[in-house]
Computed example of a mutant assay.
Amino acid sequence: MSDWIGKANREDLTYPVAAFRESLVKRLRLLRKYKGALHLTRAGAAARDRPAVLFEHLAASITPPHERDRSVVDADLLMLAYAAITPDGELPLDRIATHLTNLGYQYDDGRPIARYDVLHYEANVHDILVNIAEPPAGRRPRSQISAVASALARTALQR
């Protein structure tokens, strides 16, 4: 959160933290909310202190399920494909947006998909990939992924 404005000391004022927590609860199912507190799920407890188990769980969790909206599945697959070939680098969000537009996705008024849209669609895999890294020493682009995130994307695509 080195690039976030403000103190980043409250989740309701620090959107990326809130979004990541939501992905840990809803998409990854490593945590659950109970009586206002976060608790490990069975999957979270099983992965505790077991990196290989956690890696496999994450790979299974970020593989786009077919029952989701087709546009979200396509966006996730493009994000994973680019992440898989971008070890320790920056994801080409503009290119991903262009691909989505070329696939026929657009706004009701005809505007094409933009970089911002690729970062902010519902429960996206981008938020997960960029958070799989060592804490940055300073500011870094929000589209930068680690070598581990790239390996995770490759594993997810092979499922």
Rank of each mutant, 00 (worst) to 15 (best):
D69N: 14
T86Y: 10
G36M: 06
N102C: 03
L77E: 13
I62L: 07
H99W: 03
E67G: 04
I85L: 11
R68L: 12
D49N: 12
L93D: 01
L24S: 08
V73Y: 04
R70Q: 13
L58N: 05
R32Y: 10
A60M: 10
L38W: 12
D74M: 09
P65S: 14
R27S: 11
D49R: 10
A47K: 07
L93Y: 00
A46S: 10
H39F: 13
V73C: 05
S23C: 06
A83Q: 03
G89A: 14
R27H: 01
A46K: 14
R42W: 09
Y82M: 01
Y34R: 15
A43S: 13
V72A: 12
Y82A: 10
L13E: 13
G44F: 01
R95L: 13
P51R: 12
L103I: 02
A37Y: 11
Y34L: 09
T98Q: 15
I85Q: 14
R10F: 12
I62R: 05
L103T: 01
T41S: 08
S61Q: 14
L77V: 11
A18D: 04
R50W: 01
I85N: 09
V25S: 06
A43T: 09
R42M: 00
R21I: 14
V17P: 00
A46F: 04
E22Y: 13
A19E: 13
P64H: 06
V53E: 14
K26A: 12
P87E: 03
K26C: 04
H99D: 14
P16T: 02
T98S: 02
R48Q: 12
E22K: 15
P16C: 05
T101F: 04
H57S: 10
K33F: 03
D74H: 15
F55R: 15
G89L: 10
H57G: 06
E56W: 00
G36P: 13
L58E: 08
L31Q: 04
D76N: 12
E56S: 15
P87F: 02
L24A: 09
R29C: 10
F20A: 07
F20W: 09
E22Q: 15
L30S: 08
S61R: 15
D12P: 00
Y82C: 12
L78K: 00
E90S: 12
H66S: 13
S71L: 07
Y34P: 00
H66L: 15
L40H: 08
Y15V: 03
A19C: 05
R42C: 02
A84G: 15
P64W: 02
S61L: 04
R10M: 05
L40I: 03
V25H: 07
L103E: 09
Y82T: 03
R70A: 15
A97I: 10
E67A: 07
H99M: 05
H99C: 11
D12C: 07
A60W: 02
P64Y: 06
T101W: 02
D49Y: 06
V72Y: 05
P87G: 05
Y34I: 05
L78I: 00
D12V: 09
T41L: 03
